[in-house]
Amino acid sequence: MARDTLFEWLLRRGDTALVLGHRVSEWCGHSPVLEEDIALANVALDLIGQARMWLGLAGEVEGKGRGENELAYLRDAWDFRNFLLAEQPNGDFGQTLMRQFLIDAYQVPLLEALKSSKDERIAAIAAKAGKEVAYHLDRSADLVIRLGDGTEESHRRMQQALDALWSYTGEMFASDAIDTAMSEAGLAPDAASLKAEWKETIEAVLDEATLTLPESDFAHMGGLTGRHSEHLGHMLAEMQFLQRAYPGATW
């Protein structure tokens, strides 16, 4: 396995966890009810912890002396390899929950498959993260159902969130040269192979939630090659401010 291929692939995992984790952490202190505020903060913590593991390994593989902190705080938007879906703004509580659900439903089969990666470091992170993400999916699926099949207003907002985010889901299943190289080496599943289980979860939950699956399969692409939406730069400006303004600052 070429070192840069593995590095790029690890950034996809780490950056998606980091960006989503940071987005979710933006809710801290702003959630509609205390229990949800705490739950969101805990999900964010899990994701940031997972980002540390993936980015730590990425830095090790790269071998240029960059660790999780340098990768998280000292790269600019075009160096990030997260899915565009993860960087989409929080919107209302429903949109945050829908974004979480769409990604959780993807992460569960991905991490399950990665548990049998031929790279034991990848398998170890996947086994650890997979246990956490299973609970994330339990929660996000439960809330999507409760809000979708809730009041007229909550239903309307959940459908709106689904319609707005749907075109960002296709990117998760688009295989490219990096994915192919990883799957041929037995290190990771091919991205497209995860779609069937994801779709099964999405359909079952949306059906219970009385929400309608959008028909269009148009997909925004670019996150995995560093072409991001304008939202990522704004997010990084806030997330990276301290390390940029005071390089090497420690707590």
């Binding site: 569960v108 993400v133 299973a134 999916l137 699926a141 159902i145 979860t201 079952a204 939950v205």
Partner: peptide
């Protein structure tokens, strides 16, 4: 009772 995130488990819970 550990959640395994499996589709079967979710359907059972639903």
């Amino acid at each position: 009772t550990r959640s395994d995130g499996s589709a079967a488990g979710r359907v059972a819970r639903l």
